[in-house]
Amino acid sequence: MPSSFSLLGERLHNRRFAVVSNSQGLSGSGTVFHYLVDGDAISSTYQGGRIRIGTQVGRVTGADTIELLFQCLTLDGELLSGWSRGTVAVDKSGCTSLSFVWGWLSGATGGGESNYVEIAERDCHFP
């Protein structure tokens, strides 16, 4: 029987996500996140919009929760880093969505909330 960690990993591994909303953040329309999962370890790359290149590293913390550290280089040459804690959900059509609370650690102050939806062949929308 698969563990809850492996089920969550299946929802994220080698999948791409688009930003639905991001209060106070730099990622937005045009930013795409690509996640990879190995056991309870998570990594990702992201770019687009105001982000030239970004990376994340983190871990699965529960049946539907993750935590990440992120860093990025913006198109304006800013180097920023921060933390996030997220919840992974699946809707009735099988699309995965991510909801985060996050904050800056370096290069900026404050934080916010963000929501992403899976980029899939089927039509996915944030719940």
Rank of each mutant, 00 (worst) to 15 (best):
I66H: 00
F33T: 13
A89M: 03
E113V: 14
S84M: 04
V101C: 11
S99W: 07
G30N: 14
F100K: 12
L98Y: 06
V57D: 05
G9M: 07
R16Y: 07
A108Q: 12
L26C: 07
G39T: 04
T109N: 15
G103Q: 12
S3C: 09
L105R: 07
S6Q: 06
D40K: 11
D123P: 00
G62F: 05
V32R: 06
L69V: 12
G39Q: 04
C95H: 04
S106Y: 01
T74L: 01
L12T: 11
N14V: 12
C124Q: 08
H34A: 14
G39W: 06
G28V: 10
S3M: 12
V101Q: 15
S21T: 14
E113R: 08
M1D: 13
V60M: 06
T109I: 15
T55L: 03
D91L: 01
S29N: 15
G30Y: 12
H34G: 10
V57F: 00
G49N: 09
V101L: 12
L80G: 03
D38S: 11
G111S: 01
Y46T: 10
S23R: 15
T55A: 00
T55N: 05
H34L: 09
G58L: 11
W102I: 04
A89Q: 03
I51N: 02
G39E: 03
Q47H: 08
V60W: 01
G103W: 01
G25V: 03
P2A: 15
V60C: 01
S97W: 06
L73H: 11
A63W: 01
A18K: 13
S21Q: 11
G54N: 02
G30T: 13
L69P: 02
G30W: 12
G77K: 11
T96I: 09
T74Q: 04
G48K: 12
L80V: 12
G62D: 06
G54K: 07
T87D: 03
S97M: 15
D123S: 13
I42D: 04
R11Q: 15
Q24T: 10
T45H: 04
